[in-house]
């Protein structure tokens, strides 16, 4: 497809565990393909160890992938050298999970937000000042915070500073790695609203990495679900939340407790048993088969390809997606 802001094609990322713990190969990301269109927010959802953060780090090139291709705006950046990458970096920015460690404790807010401008050669002091204060205002902070240090701010304010730093260059693509999971509910709502507003007004594309389905449901246009380094299902938001086809996605949806006692207590729980296996030796066949109630011999031997579920780009990596899914997991 053309006109995509980001295209990731069969991305693979392997790490070698330290020799002290056996020197195994950890397959953090296995054959992940995804694309993000102009102005689109793609949610990347998964549990701990699913590889979602690693995908993000590859896209911003904090990591160089083992294999696969990353194309930003038509240019391949998979293994681009640091010098060539620099101008592109101004177009791809990142927001981090921890609002405490993502800001240099010894810099003021003004210095933090100005840093990307200086790095990309904004000449005049005055211009920097104007852009910084405009961006800080845009993320809902008062000019009073400019001369403050991160430790003088609340978690929500810090996260807004992180957002200002990422957006001051008006990037085309924002990688948001769990930007609200460290925040309290009332603060989180503000940041989510802000992200939605800024996306609408600035029009950037966004890879939104989260473990929280409700957050993805609120914010994202499309959602990809990762399990054990693979994308197991991807669909538009409405299709994913209303008509999930992959047993893992359905289990995730069923597992997240609803903040409503009537609904929560009346729903049939269909939570997968067990826990994800180790990424050093993913199971053969479908990676979910040891936990999947629908698994048959084929699932145990043959890795499923992505099956087209609908014309809206709904894909599910499951052998049994065609069959009518009636996922009834007996409670262990």
């Amino acid at each position: 497809m053309s006109g995509q802001v980001l295209e990731v094609d069969r991305l693979r990322m392997e790490f070698r565990a330290p020799r002290s713990s056996g020197g195994h190969r950890v397959q953090a990301v296995r054959d992940v393909s995804l694309e993000i269109g102009e102005g689109e927010i793609l949610g990347l959802v998964g549990e701990t160890g699913s590889g979602k953060t690693t995908v993000g780090k590859c896209v911003v090139r904090l990591l160089t992938p083992t294999a696969g291709r990353i194309t930003f705006d038509g240019k391949e950046i998979t293994a681009m050298a640091a010098r060539a990458l620099r101008p592109i970096r101004s177009q791809i920015q990142m927001v981090f999970q921890d609002p405490y460690s993502s800001l240099d404790p010894r810099m003021t807010v003004a210095q933090i937000v100005a840093e990307p401008l200086r790095a990309h050669g904004h000449p005049s002091r005055e211009q920097v000042r104007v852009l910084v204060s405009r961006t800080v205002e845009r993320v809902g902070l008062s000019a009073g915070v400019l001369e403050r240090f991160p430790h003088e701010l609340s978690g929500g304010q810090r996260q807004r500073v992180g957002l200002a730093r990422a957006l001051v260059l008006e990037p085309r693509l924002l990688i948001a790695d769990e930007p609200v999971s460290a925040l309290d509910v009332s603060v989180r709502a503000g940041i989510l609203n802000l992200l939605a507003d800024l996306q609408r007004s600035m029009g950037f594309s966004c890879l939104f990495i989260t473990h929280d389905l409700s957050v993805a449901e609120f914010l994202c246009d499309r959602v990809a679900v990762m399990y054990l380094g693979e994308i197991v299902e991807v669909a538009t938001r409405d299709e994913l939340f209303d008509d999930a086809r992959h047993p893992y996605t359905r289990s995730l949806l069923a597992a997240a407790p609803l903040a409503d006692p009537v609904q929560q207590r009346s729903r049939t729980r269909s939570v997968l048993p067990g826990e994800p296996p180790s990424t050093t030796e993913p199971p053969p066949g479908c990676s979910l088969h040891p936990r999947c109630p629908l698994a048959d011999d084929r699932c145990r031997q043959e890795s499923p390809a992505a099956t087209v579920v609908s014309r809206q780009g709904h894909l599910a990596r499951c052998h049994r997606v065609e069959e009518q899914l009636s996922l009834e997991v007996s409670r262990p």
Binding site: S186, A189, A196, E217, A259
Partner: peptide, 11 residues
């Protein structure tokens, strides 16, 4: 009300 829950979707 601050919780993103139960079918609340932007767009």
């Amino acid at each position: 009300r601050a919780l993103p829950r139960g079918g609340r979707r932007t767009g």
